[in-house]
Design a protein around this nucleic acid. Structure first.
Lengths: 100, 100
DNA sequence: ATAATAACTTACATAAAGTAAGTAACTATA
DNA sequence: TATAGTTACTTACTTTATGTAAGTTATTAT
């Protein structure tokens, strides 16, 4: 091995290349969403969605807010770090329109 | 399920969010590379690299060229479709510099 | 004849993701 | 009071994906 790739870039890739991460972020660009809403619009299993949201929260990309209503409402949204991924998502959008 | 995500976008994501795909494309932006060179610079196993390169070839993102020298030389490079991913890779680079 | 090299492939083990059922906390309905 | 409904999970179990290490093919060098 003679890794010549920037560790920051690799770290970013390791986050973004996890299954479902991109779609979760893309969905949240449209505004805050609830667990079940993400689950159904993306088509990810609850088990993995739960895991991914925790990871993204730990990375400071997603924010979790609890509203103690009945039944409880929990909203997920993007932090500034998450919103900073918008240009990237737009590039994927453009590329997919031109080449897929 | 009420999928509201553009199928082209989803398809693009399913390619790009596969483990190692991003790093392979990123490395090939620097020019054609051989199998063993990709293997060592990225740190992916040969088994999976082989699988990925086939997938990317099938998607028309990567081109495989055989040079019948001794020992044989095989070079992988990006097609136009692959090169079109450069802005995206630059965005990931930028984001990682600012936020990681 | 043996070893070396590149580019894979195969067999087997471990890690990640999917599926379906279960839980907690509360409310609405019978 | 009991039953069922709702949201946001978690748990146990199965299937798929990836890693590891050894083997294969074709060719040249020693």
């Amino acid at each position: 091995m003679d890794k010549s790739i920037c560790p920051r870039f690799e770290k970013a890739m390791s986050i973004l290349s996890q299954r479902w991460t991109g779609l979760i972020i893309y969905q949240l660009l449209g505004g805050p969403q609830r667990f079940c809403s993400l689950e159904s619009s993306i088509g990810v299993s609850g088990r993995v969605l739960s895991e991914r949201l925790k990871d993204l929260e730990n990375e400071g990309i997603v924010k979790r807010e609890v509203f103690p209503e009945t039944p409880v409402r929990i909203e997920y949204s993007l932090t500034d770090k998450g919103v900073a991924l918008e240009p990237l998502m737009r590039d994927i959008e453009n590329w997919s329109q031109n080449w897929i």
